[in-house]
Structures are given as structure tokens and as C-alpha cells.
């Protein structure tokens, strides 16, 4: 209860700080939550929490909440799609197929600079198969490959050893390169599940097997993903390499 009071008391300060860090709401770094025909909203609070953490931990002027986006053209969510360079496709269970026009819009988004983060509860969840089916249709001829441990996502802000989420069944992230950058990143450890909590500040899911330490790593991965979306391969610039190598050797 004391924690809740503290959070409520500190909220105005946080909002004020956040609101003063960009000239115009569109200049804040936000995330698009992709609305689709399946269970798209199973982790409704996770991205809000991630953005709050990004704003707290980094110099990024983060938006207060994620924006709902869609692949159709007519709806307000559909019009919002291209205003969100980072879009998260999350869900569990079956992912109904996208229409041809929806696939074309998603392809256009990715080819012109957008980034898609796909988060699944587990590798065995049918959502993964559905997501892979859609990726094959959206970006034909590309391959979803495991990102190696040295990929810039694992060092864009925090130095990380691998992927985690609510689970840590698979230490890999998977990605598809478009024009030299990972335009699609797939996590199968329920990353959003680790970030999800209710409005009272209670974590909705336990992280297994390492509890809150694992949750912290999940947040760090989330921060790194947002940082990658905004800075791209900045941490692979030659000037950073000796510093990062030195830290990793320690």
C-alpha cells in the first residue's frame, strides 16, 4: 500500500518531466500496439510501463502510453500506423491472417524505416506460427534468423547476454534484416508478460525461474529495443567498440 501511495504521489512529477521534454506530442518516442483479429491486448499495461521506464532510465522523451495502431487504412488506428516507427505485434493463440492490403501496408511501413517487435508467450504458442506465416507473406524472400549475441540490440543501452522475458526458454531474439537493419524482431519469452502489471502496481505474472532479477533484465531488454529503434546501429559505430569490448572483458 505504501508503494502505491508513493507512486501516486510521484506521478505528477513524472508526467510533468515527461511533458516538458519535447516540443509537440509527436516528437515524443512512443510505441504502436498493433490491433489485429486475435488476442492483441493480452498485456494491456506492459508497453505503458516500458515507456515509463524508458523515460526514467534514459534521456529519451518517452510518450506516456503506447498508441493503438491497425493495418487497415480507414480507422483512426490505421491512420496512426505510420506515425509510430516502432510497432509491437503481441498476442497469444491463433493469429487470423491479414488481408492483402493489410500486408501491403505493413510491408510499406517496414521498408520505409519502421520496426516491428513481435512478442509471443512461448515458442510453442500458435501465435508464433501465425506471425511467421504473416512475415513470409509481408516480406517474401527474407529469412527470420537468430540474432547473434553481439547484435547491437544487446548493447544499445544495457550490456545484455541474451533475451529474457517472463520466461527465459530461448536466449535468442530472431530478426529479419531490411536494408541493413533488423526491421523485424521476434521474442518468444513473453517479454510483455514480464512488464505487465495492474493499475495498483502489482506485477501480473511471475517471472520464471529468476523472479524479479529476471524482470529487471526484461526491462533492460525492452529499453534496449526502444533504444535500437531510435538509434539504430549507433552502438556499432567505431568509436564505441573499444569501450564496449573493455567492459565486456571485465
Amino acid at each position: 500500500m505504501r508503494r502505491r501511495d508513493f507512486l501516486l504521489a510521484s506521478m505528477p512529477l513524472v508526467l510533468a518531466a515527461s511533458g516538458a521534454r519535447a516540443i509537440g506530442p509527436r516528437s515524443e518516442v512512443g510505441v504502436g500496439r498493433l490491433k489485429h483479429g486475435g488476442a492483441w491486448d493480452a498485456r494491456p499495461e506492459a508497453l505503458r510501463r516500458l515507456l515509463w521506464e524508458v523515460g526514467k532510465r534514459t534521456s529519451i522523451a518517452a510518450a506516456k502510453d503506447a498508441a493503438v495502431v491497425a493495418l487497415d487504412e480507414e480507422s483512426p488506428e490505421g491512420k496512426e500506423l505510420f506515425w509510430q516507427p516502432l510497432v509491437v505485434l503481441a498476442g497469444e493463440g491463433e493469429l487470423p491472417p491479414f488481408s492483402a492490403r493489410q500486408r501491403a501496408r505493413l510491408e510499406r511501413h517496414l521498408r520505409y524505416g519502421g520496426t516491428l517487435l513481435i512478442d509471443a508467450p512461448s515458442a510453442a504458442d500458435p501465435f508464433v506460427a501465425g506471425a511467421k506465416r504473416e512475415l513470409a507473406a509481408v516480406l517474401p524472400g527474407t529469412t527470420l534468423r537468430a540474432l547473434d549475441d553481439e547484435h547491437v540490440i544487446f548493447k544499445s543501452f544495457y550490456l545484455l547476454d541474451g533475451a529474457v522475458g517472463r520466461t527465459r526458454d530461448d536466449a535468442h531474439l530472431y530478426g529479419i534484416d531490411v536494408a541493413g537493419r533488423a526491421a523485424v524482431v521476434l521474442s518468444t519469452n513473453d517479454l510483455l508478460g514480464a512488464l505487465e502489471r495492474d493499475r495498483f502496481g502489482t506485477w501480473r505474472y511471475d517471472c520464471e525461474p529468476d523472479g524479479d532479477a529476471q524482470r529487471e533484465l526484461a526491462f533492460r531488454l525492452g529499453v534496449n529495443l526502444v533504444m535500437y529503434a531510435t538509434c539504430l546501429d549507433y552502438k556499432e559505430d567505431q568509436v564505441h567498440i573499444p569501450f564496449i569490448m573493455k567492459k565486456k572483458r571485465r
Partner: peptide
């Protein structure tokens, strides 16, 4: 291109030691 981005300001709380960060 040589670029330098300020990824963290003095008021940001990273929850991590400097060695855990890629900052230079």
C-alpha cells in the same frame, strides 16, 4: 558520419552500474 548521442542525462536512473551499460 561520426555521431554522439546523449543516451542518459544526469537525472536518469538506470538501475545499473556503469559496467552494465554500453555508455561511453
Amino acid at each position: 558520419l561520426i555521431s554522439f548521442f546523449i543516451l542518459r542525462s544526469t537525472t536518469d536512473l538506470t538501475n545499473a552500474g556503469n559496467r552494465e551499460l554500453s555508455l561511453i
